[in-house]
Amino acid sequence: MASITTEEESKLLIVLPGDQLPESGLMEDSSAAHRLTLGPGLAPMDDDSITAVKAGILKHNAVGNRWWVESNQRRYVAAQGESIIGVVTGKSVEHYKVDIGASQPALLGVLAFEGATKRNKPNHNIGDLLYCRVSMANKDMEAELECMNPTTGKADGFGELKGGFVIKISLGLARRLLDPKNLVLRLLGQHIPFEMAVGTNGKVWVNSANAQHTILICNAIRNSEYLNSAECSAMVKSLVEKM
């Protein structure tokens, strides 16, 4: 891991599954507050205590008194509202079956597209790549997807991804790529024009003018996972120079 300054160290709270949070004093200031919003990795227990269910870094946002655990894993578990990339694996009258890398395939209604009606609806084939939003995700049920913004009914960028290439990365790295300040993407953007879609299920779609560039971008993203900023710029530089 990169060197951590003492100031950061005091903020870095690592929790393990089974850690009870109010007891350990980590959430002291918030226990007095009335409302508490729990994010991924935290679960309320029967006795009103809060327990970590994932290993990772405990994070807090004062706005809305939000708490969550930032963890990393490879297998996707669908969560409502997340944007993901899936592959069509089956077709029926009412649904497409989409592989999203979770334990079960997800369902995408044939009418869940912008402006789709019973008479006029987009036709997708098996093997097509779709960028969609998880509209419903319950435990022990197949997740449901949609290819539009539910409030406006507009596509909002969701839909079929044409051309390009897809790589599978860890979920933690995928979330980091969504940060607009992400270093590796900014560095790559200085040298090569490209477009990409990041799915929180760890799938990343990249498209650029030619295959060599796309391969380079994919490799740079994959390599960046465990590099600090200095190593990251050196890595991108050496890849671009070799091109």
């Binding site: 592959v87 694996t89 084939n125 093997g127 790549l129 044409k162 051309g163 779609w205």
Partner: peptide
């Protein structure tokens, strides 16, 4: 799962 058409 088979790879997507794009990947292929």
């Amino acid at each position: 799962a088979d790879p997507s058409t794009n990947e292929r």
